[in-house]
Nucleic acid binder design. Structure first.
Lengths: 194, 194
DNA sequence: AGAATACGAGACATGCCGTGCCGTAATGTC
DNA sequence: GACATTACGGCACGGCATGTCTCGTATTCT
């Protein structure tokens, strides 16, 4: 079952992702062209087309590691609300840098390419939600979150608020995020919120 | 002070906006080209470039009337929270049709053209907020809304949630919107919410 | 009549896309 | 060691949309 023929070049693969990420930081997804990526990576456009179906797919793969790392959540407490607070502030902070601009670019690309939207949901939205939903469900079980709110709706509102700032090019500052968290926590708390 | 020379053709102007709106409904902003607009309107591309700086500007002008009409709010009650509920459901309903898709397209266009973003904020975001902010401030004054929440943050969360669904191509259904409203109202209510 | 401005039509260069073809390189199989 | 197979970089092509320009013509005011 050994694959036959010349194997895929890891060097080229890595160089392409690196070049893509650099260009995304410098000019954003809107101004990214496969030509620029190829020439900076020392690759050829043929190679890009061989492995990725679209510009969005390359940008996604080049950014996924960074985004997933910056948005990671390591639960430290059993208190669902407190933990959720922590997650949101961490996300807001991550979105303040160039990562936020890249995210906005990806969201825009999703509107012109259904495949990119699919990849986005699959590789970014879904895993992130899968990570947080159990936390919220735990909160519902222990009574710290009202039982009649749907975890997914909470997340729609959370990421919605953040996307809103990203798309309108308003920085997600700490004070603003505090206000959002405040409303959310009051809105979902099962008992008089702390 | 009478303007000299041939006056601008109202017929052509109207035809262009009509053609643009039709094409937006049919294919969305992403697939809109000035060529298609011009040929359907029986105009020439020169005329488009003469009067509008960008594709986003044309799309904006062609859609503004419709969007503003569908999102209009006529206060019927003094109860700020009840009135806010009404507004949100009306917006969610409007965003369910082709208007929602057009909005998503405009948001995407804003990411590649700063001028379109400026127009969007100026002609859509600002007036809509100016319409609602007084309502929320009245609610704060009469105690139905907590005094320590900022009206603008409420709106960030509201439109954020809606944008979120639009961008991810999830319909803004009534049941979902009810859940959002529920959390929001609980989150901002000054006294035990109804 | 003449100046000024708008209009439709079309030409042009530019940039990016998506695809295909070439010669070459790197791996496995016989 | 020859051979098939696959990947690679380079290049060229056609297609499409952009933005700018020029042209002849139309409509208005002075």
């Amino acid at each position: 079952m050994a694959p036959v023929g010349r194997p895929r070049s890891d060097a080229s693969h890595a160089a392409i992702l690196k070049a893509t990420y650099e260009l995304l930081q410098e000019e954003g997804l809107a101004r990214l062209t496969l030509d620029k990526v190829a020439s900076r990576a020392g690759a050829s456009r043929s190679t890009l087309y061989r492995w990725w179906p679209s510009r969005g797919a390359i940008a996604m793969e080049a950014t996924l590691d960074t985004i997933n790392r910056e948005m990671s959540l390591e639960p430290k407490s059993d208190n669902a609300l407190a933990e959720y607070r922590r997650l949101l502030k961490s996300v807001a902070r991550a979105m303040r840098g160039s990562t936020g601009a890249i995210m906005a670019g990806i969201l825009a690309e999703c509107q012109r390419d259904p495949e990119t939207l699919r990849l986005f949901k699959e590789n970014l939205v879904a895993p992130r939600r899968a990570e947080v939903i159990p936390l919220l469900e735990r909160g519902i079980k222990d009574g710290s979150i009202r039982p009649d709110v749907k975890p997914h709706t909470i997340l729609d509102m959370t990421f919605g608020a953040i996307y809103h700032q990203l798309l309108l090019h308003v920085p997600t500052e700490d004070a603003w995020m505090d206000g959002v968290i405040d409303i959310l926590v009051h809105g979902i708390a099962g008992k008089p919120a702390a």
